[in-house]
């Protein structure tokens, strides 16, 4: 049980890191338009594959 003294702080460190990341994502406006950003990831892939076709 004494490992708790070791594990809980580690959990907390990860929690703080996650929190920082989420706050950064919100600050950079990534959540301002939830309808569109869901598709951004596909658009880039599509563009690259098209470039490859052109070559």
């Amino acid at each position: 049980m004494s490992t708790l003294y070791f594990l809980i702080p580690i959990a907390l460190v990860f929690c703080v890191i996650t929190l920082k990341l989420v706050l950064w994502a919100i600050q950079s406006g990534q959540y301002s338009d939830l309808d569109r950003d869901a598709h951004v990831i596909f658009e880039d892939v599509e563009l690259n594959s098209e470039d490859a076709k052109d070559d």
Binding site: C15, T18, L19, V22, L23, I26, Q27, G29, Y31, S32
Partner: peptide, 14 residues
């Protein structure tokens, strides 16, 4: 305000 509210929501959620 929207951004601030999202941050507060994220902190509360975590």
């Amino acid at each position: 305000e929207n951004m601030l509210m999202l941050k507060r929501l994220a902190v509360a959620g975590l």
